[in-house]
Design a binder for these strands. Structure first.
Lengths: 127, 127
DNA sequence: GACACCTGGTTTCCAATGGAAACCTTGGGC
DNA sequence: GCCCAAGGTTTCCATTGGAAACCAGGTGTC
């Protein structure tokens, strides 16, 4: 069925490394971080403040994973107190366009989603 | 900075409902389910078999959330043993193009990601 | 009638993850 | 000596995830 020029990766196969990537991409904080960095490099705390709700622990974990995946870079400046800048790599840059489409979709279709939820909950209530 | 014609939703604000949507989208199983349904309606067990690694519990939870969000529909057929078909709604259909871009990105850029991981791990090993 | 089997779940149990808050480190300033 | 700031790490507890067992209800089989 899939005999085209596709790469030998199949995200539906649990043993496929592409699934590992999808696991990372499908982390809400990772998506938000990547999108946030589109505007240029950011330091740890300003990144944290700009994404309300993320804890320091989780943010540092997410940043480490993204760095390991080569999607962002981490640069330390020997200022007083040391400052650290995170920036998109070129690989990460190729992702952000797609991520932007996702966040844009979310913002655009919120009203429809909320309406659907209300309908669903109402139908349950009278059941 | 963002003073354009954007809707009054801000995914970076934890209190924004768009974040709830992003939470759902950034669920790896949800992404896989939505993409799988692009080919047409599927029944519970065939969906489960086609996405290796998902448990029954999690799949039914994901399907319930997606149905509540109005992204998929659930139709019961009174066959002998009852069969249940899940299908994309039109709202869900608007998402799948974006989702496809994400999975396609994952499959395309796997090699680069794996190389980055190897580099990262190597640099840690000699530290 | 007792038994096994099908789909489509729910329940149970345990391990892994997430988040809040406290703590640590390095280096000023006062 | 004391406090502060940046960038984390550690601790602790609650929530979530997954494997496997169980359930419902309807059919067929002996």
């Amino acid at each position: 069925m899939v005999t085209s020029t596709k790469p030998p990766y199949d995200v539906y196969d649990a043993n496929c490394p592409a699934r590992q990537v999808l696991d990372r991409l499908s982390d809400k904080w990772a998506l938000l971080v990547l999108d946030r960095l589109r505007g240029g490099p950011l330091r740890f705390n300003s990144l944290r403040r700009s994404i309300s709700g993320v804890s320091q622990k989780v943010l540092s974990q997410v940043l480490k994973r993204l760095e390991r995946d080569g999607l962002i870079s981490r640069q330390v400046f020997p200022t007083v107190p040391v400052s650290v800048e995170y920036a998109l790599t070129s690989l990460g840059g190729t992702l952000t366009a797609t991520v932007e489409l996702l966040t844009h979709w979310a913002e655009t279709n919120m009203a429809a989603i909320e309406a659907a939820q209300a309908r669903y909950d109402a139908s349950l209530a009278l059941a």
